[in-house]
Design a protein around this nucleic acid. Structure first.
Lengths: 337, 337
DNA sequence: CTTGGCACTCAAGAACACGGAGTGCCAAAT
DNA sequence: ATTTGGCACTCCGTGTTCTTGAGTGCCAAG
């Protein structure tokens, strides 16, 4: 149906269009890529490609532009992920190696990714579900207020204020803190609810109401924070890509956590690269954009995802290379912690 | 030099231009505002205003547009801060009242402000300098790694990992933790360095190296985090305002912490509203924008600042009203904590 | 199946006219 | 001394028309 030359033509069209941002015609193709055939032949091929929906012309008698379907074919069959240059690798390494903090790792990663790809970078904080409790702290911050702090082995620190209208005593807090840590230390976060259910039995009867309040907040926090935190960087790069009118919509979409979640979230395979092109995206405002995402984590377990978003007219091989490389390095950093 | 009517004309020009986004001519002014004089008279006044640099015409024989200087005069002498509508007040109250967390307060505030003003909102986290230590926690998270957590009375939680190649024992950590809390609890953050200096003397000689490492990280953290955290929201609103070409530059500027700091930071009077118009801004990319900012905090002490950024062609009275109102409510929330 | 030739299409740009909003200035009116 | 109507003038924006050129589709010959 599509012989090799037609595929080569499609590849050439994508490459040229990505680099020039102008509809590409048969003559230009014949010149720039030595396909060994005349423009007329290319025209015939292009007619077929258009008929099949891989390319389109903006107006009659303009050059051709790849469609979403065309990009899809290009990504799936016509391109190979471009490895980074040595300089880029070094940049990643030095930039990430100096991070001293989970926050810092994430912040640096998102900036790095934005800079490397010259696109909007999106990084999700390591998931709580894959973490274990390292320590639980209860700190009084007022006569009727308590701060609950949960520290996980992935370095995340969750905090939450608790209102205690009935008040509390220092000792009962200390007791409860010890109890919680004894039971929950090292506990897989997904197992916490089960373990917590048993705790009240070990508490003296008069402390039960206090404990109940705190435990319910604890569970609530874990569930709420389950909706993961996401940071973005490089929004300015969107202005460079001429999404023109829809720019505003895209920016708006990027400010909604929910959309971001779905952007990275819905995946088939968590370890390999996911590329979502144009209308494949989960939100209408993003129909003129593409997303390249992947999972990252310490070792082989995926704890979160990261990726970039840009115009569908995007350098897929390069972007994919950068995303993959950054994800790997971040994984190493996390594993080393 | 400028009689009342000329000022009225300037006010009318600013108001019309802000609402229509088109250069305003003498006839339109005479119609829409009943100034009681003819267009010809207004033309004379406009000629004077232009000569003095308060207004300008984009092209010969176009209407007039306010200059930065014109906006400045408008803000200083011709406008009164517009109070919010009852509905808006209620919106603020319900939206902020449900926050359960410092993070949550800040996040909600910045979104609220963006929505209310339909501009880019910028909110600074409460400063550490005005806070006191509530609790210090040391948590082992590996054989050679320790997590230092500092909790302040403003609800901020700072964390930082510490590498301890020499290792450590549980007891010495517990000891040090107790010691630190005994000395630093309730201690004004600005006083911490002085107090910390005395700590080593109270530590058994064999623990000194351990303590020294931790203390130095503690100080470092306080100094580093001194550069405050800032969040923004509503970047999409920039796309609506037609900053056209410079949009990219503005977005880029907003991604740099340093610029943001200076945006809110350089203030004469910390409690009242600061308005910085066009070229008064500290960064060249922001010369087509204005900033309305103010301090906020519990009671009368200012712990941080917040504000919005938009095109110089901005509804100053409305924006100022919203910024002031939000700052007050946030102050109340913080005071209530 | 490929190629050169050819007529056709259409977007983008230049040249031009023109209507209109707005100005500046002046002389008359208040 | 200020305000006002009148008037000539300036340009911006818009619409029209032409031209140019890149690119196409088709066809007949290689």
């Amino acid at each position: 149906m599509l012989d090799d030359r037609k595929l080569a033509v499609l590849r050439a069209i994508v490459e040229d269009y990505v680099s020039t941002n102008e509809p590409v015609g048969s003559k230009a193709l014949a010149d720039r890529h030595n396909l060994g055939v005349s423009p007329a032949t290319i025209r015939n091929d292009m007619a077929v490609l258009e008929e099949q929906g891989y390319i389109a012309q903006p107006h009659t008698s303009a050059g051709r532009v790849p469609t979403d379907k065309g990009y899809r074919l290009f990504v799936d069959r016509l391109s190979t992920i471009k490895p980074l240059s040595a300089a880029e690798r070094r940049a990643i390494e030095t930039f990430l190696a100096n991070a001293y903090d989970l926050d810092d790792v994430v912040t640096r990663t998102v900036r790095l990714l934005a800079q490397l790809t010259r696109q909007v970078a999106v990084v999700q904080y390591p998931s709580l579900t894959r973490s274990a409790v390292r320590h639980i702290e209860l700190v009084p911050i007022g006569p009727e207020r308590l701060l609950l702090v949960i520290i996980t082995n992935t370095g995340r620190v969750e905090q939450r204020a608790i209102e205690m209208p009935q008040g509390f005593s220092e000792e009962s807090i200390a007791q409860l803190r010890a109890l919680l840590n004894a039971h929950l230390d090292g506990c897989w976060l997904t197992d916490v609810p089960g373990v917590v259910a048993e705790v009240p039995d070990r508490v003296p009867a008069e402390e039960r109401p206090l404990a109940a309040t705190i435990l319910s907040v604890l569970l609530e926090t874990l569930i709420e924070k389950h909706e993961e935190k996401i940071v973005i960087a490089g929004a300015a790069n969107l202005a460079r890509a001429d999404l023109s009118q829809s720019l505003r919509d895209v920016l708006e979409a990027l400010e909604e956590q929910v959309v971001l979640m779905r952007l990275l979230g819905e995946v088939s395979d968590p370890t390999s690269l996911t590329v979502r092109i144009g209308a494949e995206n989960p939100h209408e405002s993003l129909f003129t954009t593409s997303v390249v995402a992947t999972g990252y984590g310490a070792g082989d377990q995926v704890v979160a995802r990261l990726g970039v978003l840009g115009p569908t007219r995007m350098d897929y091989p390069g972007t994919m290379g950068a995303v993959r490389a950054v994800a790997r390095y971040v994984g190493q950093i996390l594993a080393g912690s």
